[in-house]
């Protein structure tokens, strides 16, 4: 059997109890799933379901208390890991809930930042950055500082910053969570268009069922803590998808209802 790109095996994470003699709080326990190369997986779960914790474990910002995480068949994280390697040497990209742009860098310099960290941006990198910025409507804002941009623009900037250095897998933690419906739909469209250009592997966490269906090839449903996989659905809607019309497509409503039943 072919080894999946990412394998999360029986992973658990607990937080030590506040008071002595109290039970530790397991936010995640016995969580198992795999992600194939080029797959767009969406994850949905109730608030407080340890979604961000899970992504932090995969991105190696945190170590699991039990289980292991394997990337291309190689264990990269387990309770025995002593050294954290955030991003696993640029193999795992991470678009967090907050944009985390460096406030003292212009939009363009923020986008180029990952290239600069590896010896500087060559002409090809710059051209690609320009393309990406144009693709998400940031052309003309290259010299602006983050505080001069709207929330949606900052999100786009953070998104293409990660796309630019092209990590094999990208984690996204409710990246469009705090935006208004209009901007959100626009960004979903942008993301789908960018994704269709180079089918990256993406794990996209959200609490919006419609978003999970519109974007993903497959959606995983997370339970309340201790969080595990409570269900999985393949999404057979044809691509390319129209963000605005998806809800009227055949099968959408049934899927939506089925997922809502399971997200408790």
């Amino acid at each position: 059997m072919e080894e999946p790109l990412l394998r999360v095996q029986d992973v658990g994470k607990f937080f030590p109890p506040r008071e002595r003699n109290a039970q530790p709080f397991w936010i995640i326990r016995g969580l198992t799933f795999t992600v194939a190369e080029g797959e767009f997986v969406t994850m949905i779960g109730p608030s407080g379901a340890g979604k961000s914790t899970l992504l932090n474990l995969i991105a190696q910002v945190d170590t699991p208390s039990e289980g292991e995480i394997a990337f291309r068949g190689r264990t990269i994280s387990s309770p025995r890991s002593t050294v954290l390697r955030p991003g696993f040497d640029r193999q795992i990209g991470y678009v967090t809930q907050e944009d985390n742009l460096l406030p003292w860098r212009t939009t363009l310099d923020n986008v180029l930042f990952p290239l600069e960290l590896r010896g500087g941006a060559d002409a090809q990198g710059r051209a690609r950055a320009g393309e990406l910025m144009a693709a998400v409507g940031l052309a003309g804002f290259e010299r602006h500082y983050p505080h001069e941009l709207s929330g949606g623009m900052r999100k786009r900037c953070a998104l293409i910053r990660t796309l630019l250095y092209d990590p094999p897998i990208i984690l996204m933690d409710e990246p469009f969570g705090a935006l208004d419906a209009q901007t959100r739909a626009q960004l979903q469209e942008d993301l789908l268009r960018l994704w269709s250009m180079r089918r990256k592997t993406i794990i996209f966490v959200t609490h919006d069922i419609a978003e999970a269906i519109v974007l993903g090839d497959r959606t995983l449903i997370l339970s309340r803590p201790p969080t595990r996989i409570a269900g999985a659905h393949s999404i057979a809607l044809p691509r390319p998808r129209d963000v605005h019309a998806a809800a009227r497509q055949e099968g959408f409503a049934a899927l939506h209802d089925a997922i809502r039943e399971q997200v408790r």
Partner: peptide, 25 residues
């Protein structure tokens, strides 16, 4: 700390974190 972490995820070394995140901050 979030900015530090983000820079690490983007591949920044210890020195680069100091130069690009801690110092300007």
């Amino acid at each position: 700390l979030k900015l530090v972490r983000m820079a690490q995820i983007l591949g920044a070394s210890e020195m680069q974190v100091a130069r690009h995140v801690i110092l300007p901050g």
